[in-house]
Design a protein around this nucleic acid. Structure first.
Lengths: 339, 339
DNA sequence: CTGAAAGCGCTTACAG
DNA sequence: CTGAAAGCGCTTACAG
């Protein structure tokens, strides 16, 4: 049996389909009894209004598109969970699409969102490729970015306060007594790397600790790159006593390199990460790191987007503070004589 | 400026909108020149066909709904990534919805998928609540389950081969020389726990090792529960020399309990997990575990669903083999005299 | 090869 | 308070 349409309900109720439409939306134009009666019939027939037909006339799909590099990234998944939450709370459904950072896929995604007439788009943790940017903006619908890596022409975004968080994380190491503090960064020149590096420098400056270029090493944001970058730092005549890592993934690789060198964290080297991934709590030792309130950031992004969709103004850039989570990978440096 | 419709293109090209529709779909009825000409104009005007209008007439949305407990679960996220991949490859978009295991939210999700006229639904790693089940099936559209925890009336599902994988994992411990092997399970009575336990028993039976009920302890599938369950096993007069855990999360908790008891893995106790979460590779020691090909399972589920949508038949139950990943949490038991 | 017409399932001015 | 009509943007038999 076909799904009942508004006409079937109208026939069953002996009214016009306009009246059924009004009854289902609780129009104040109808008298309560009529509404009751029609709704009851609709329910009995298992009627569910078609959002597609409604969208066609209202020109609103109550749908948002979320593009991510890959939902398999736990960071991204939590942001999306926040987005979906508030979207759903407001009656919006979310289309999820993975770009896999492949240009042709990004194209397909933008195309499909355009065809589906999504009311707005959120892009999470993307580099937002050169090609991609104009394509998305040509869609002429509101777009909000979360932790975007290139300051493009997009207006609205939610970002972690990289500078402040990194400064605080580095300051934590300084307060423990470290002075030879390395920065293990990301080599791709992302905005977040630049900002985190700036926060690191700021903390050194404030403490009057000279910045030493040899204490900067670059990974790829993944364990493998962190591993290599750390190995390089370990070959220094005088290796650092503490390392502030661009992210937890890099820190994981650094941890491995330190372990393989026969050294221990935090006894020989203190380590701080960034992100507070699940694994940070369960590696050995548990990692001191900066927590990004991912779900919250997703919620904020969705709230901004919904405002924009409603035609209201919204904050252009929200900086969300990170939180330094102290665990067991940081400790005072060993005094020179105890080495 | 409003988005151009098929009529705007028709006017610009001096043809009827029917012809435009045909041109855009490369109908063999039109002569190639016409198609070319119209497509060029459409492109210039930045025309994008409306999927919502099309869906209304074709009665197909080329959309699938994916319900998950929470996308923040890395396991789920990878399955979804596989689903999205193949859906997208076939021109389908995916609606993502989190149920958070809350009945009222499950209801809303089912309702919204019904309104949006999704062509099919995939439910991942859900308990599929009592209420939920009839609701979903009343939708009268194809549904595929991935690792569902209750054998319901749903016909199509993709599941990991729990029995075989657990048997092999336990056999690995036996081959290392263990005989006092514990099973650290999940107390909620999920199908996967039952099956994994059965695999464990099978391995013991095959090896002629008597099953000892005191070597079974139940957690909650999370680190906290694994921690408590392991502590109980450690109070035994003669604790196990190896533990097969229901999943990696439980193993993480067990690891902590063992460490706190002043014992070491694998020297004092060998540990095997299940799932091969990312963290399994980076905890200390790296965890021997059963890998579930999550992305692959997502892809399979999507393929089955697409077949069903096309009206074709499909396998009712696919069992996907797990893969034992040997890392550093398992070793032969210490000989009694060396204790 | 192309157009006019009908229709998908709704919403919403416009009448009455 | 309710209905008839128009229309959202497409697809697709039916004619010609």
């Amino acid at each position: 049996m076909r799904k009942p349409s508004i006409k079937d309900i109208a026939a069953a109720a002996g009214v016009s389909h306009s009246t059924v439409s009004r009854a289902l939306r609780n129009s104040p134009l109808l008298k309560p009894e009529t509404i009751q009666r029609i709704q009851k019939i609709a329910q009995e027939k298992g009627y569910t209004a078609s959002a597609v037909a409604r969208s066609l006339v209202t020109r609103r799909t109550h749908t948002i598109g979320v593009v991510v590099t890959t939902i398999a990234d736990p960071f991204v998944a939590e942001v999306v969970s926040g987005i979906e939450q508030t979207a759903n709370d407001h009656g919006y459904s979310v289309f999820l699409a993975n770009s896999n950072a492949e240009p042709e896929r990004e194209l397909k995604v933008a195309q499909s969102f355009a065809e589906r007439r999504v009311d707005g788009i959120i892009v999470t943790s993307s580099r937002v490729g050169a090609l991609y940017t104009p394509m998305l903006s040509s869609l002429q619908i509101p777009i909000v970015l979360v932790n975007n890596q290139h300051p493009g022409q997009f207006v609205h975004s939610v970002m972690i306060a990289n500078f402040e968080a990194s400064r605080d994380a580095t300051r934590h190491l300084i307060q423990l007594g470290h002075t030879r503090i390395a920065y293990l960064g990301d080599r791709f020149g992302y905005q977040s790397d630049t900002e985190r590096f700036a926060g690191y420098r700021e903390a050194l400056d404030c403490a009057g600790i000279p910045f030493l270029p040899e204490l900067v090493s670059h990974g790829d944001g993944k364990p493998e790159g962190g591993y290599e970058a750390m190995k390089k730092l370990l070959t220094l005549p005088e290796p650092p006593t503490a390392v502030f890592c661009y992210n937890d993934m890099s820190a994981l690789g650094a941890l491995k390199a330190i372990r393989e060198a026969g050294l221990r964290v935090p006894r020989d080297i203190s380590l701080v990460g960034f992100d507070d991934l699940f694994v940070a709590e369960y590696c050995e030792p548990p990692l001191t790191t900066v927590r990004q309130p991912r779900r919250h950031m997703g919620r904020l992004a969705a709230e901004i987007l919904l405002k924009l969709i409603q035609g209201a103004g919204a904050e252009e850039l929200i900086r969300v503070p990170g939180e330094l989570i102290l665990r067991e990978s940081t400790a005072p440096p060993r005094s020179p004589e105890s080495r």
